[in-house]
């Protein structure tokens, strides 16, 4: 229609835009140039696809701590969380060919989230003791050496308090809050990942925050400092 000769002379600028070669949206091509981490990840991934196990293991080393942090907040049991992360890496290796572009980090995170939700379902079917590892504070991340000791101590205490409170709310609320508030997913992505409606996701996040506030009511001074 826009390319028709009758419209051509009347709207030359529009035709020029229309006849311009279409922009090919290749997430790999567009992100490689921008992000050195993504460039590194894609190189490792391509080598892994070609059968290089060491390249895949390099990816594992790069992301295991990050994925563990994500999963252990959804499944607050260190052993189960570690198993879920391991399962996520096995799944990723098995489905290397299923990578459709985009950020490797997001791809791995989504696999890990699914593995974490599988672990949650498994836990629901076979309820065990309520997360004994949470009593052990030694798994908190090491404090930054350059930071003020008081600040570091406060931050560690705050993180521990949040982790305790997160472990005490419902699994659905915890998953939604971790994905939205901690990992930065948007409502739509969370709805797709968890298989519920957008309204349900919002409701879980909002009610979960209120539940967290109730649980942390007498420790809010940690957050004000």
């Amino acid at each position: 229609m826009l390319d028709s000769p009758s419209l051509g002379p009347a709207i030359p600028g529009l035709i020029a835009v229309r006849r311009a070669p279409p922009a090919v949206e290749d997430p790999r091509a567009t992100t490689v140039a921008d992000d050195p981490v993504q460039r590194r990840d894609l190189i490792l991934l391509e080598r892994a696809m070609a059968g290089d196990l060491d390249a895949f293991n390099d990816l594992v080393v790069c992301y295991q701590d990050r994925l563990f942090a994500l999963v252990v907040r959804m499944v607050p049991d260190r052993d189960q969380a570690a198993d879920a992360v391991q399962e996520a890496f096995l799944h990723a290796f098995r489905h290397l060919a299923g990578f459709r572009g985009g950020l490797v980090r997001s791809w791995l995170s989504k696999i890990a989230v699914n593995a974490a939700m599988d672990a949650q379902r498994f836990r629901k079917r076979r309820p065990a003791d309520p997360y004994p590892e949470l009593e052990d504070e030694s798994w908190q991340p090491p404090a930054d050496a350059s930071a003020d000791p008081v600040t570091s101590s406060l931050a560690a205490e705050r993180h521990a308090a949040i982790n305790h409170a997160l472990a005490a709310i419902t699994t659905d609320q915890r998953t939604a809050i971790v994905l939205y508030d901690v990992e930065g997913y948007d409502y739509g992505e969370i709805a797709r990942l968890t298989g519920v409606s957008l309204g349900t996701v919002k409701s879980r996040i909002h009610r979960g925050r209120l539940a967290l506030r109730d649980l942390l009511a007498d420790r809010m001074e940690l957050f004000r400092g």
Partner: peptide, 29 residues
């Protein structure tokens, strides 16, 4: 309180040391 909580949640460390090495062995592969 909720605003402070949201800040606290966003401030959680993005990575925690994994309790074990997750690298795949040749046998796994």
């Amino acid at each position: 309180d909720l605003r402070l909580l949201a800040i606290g949640l966003a401030d959680l460390p993005p990575s925690l040391p994994a309790p074990r090495d997750m690298r795949l062995t040749e046998a796994d592969a």
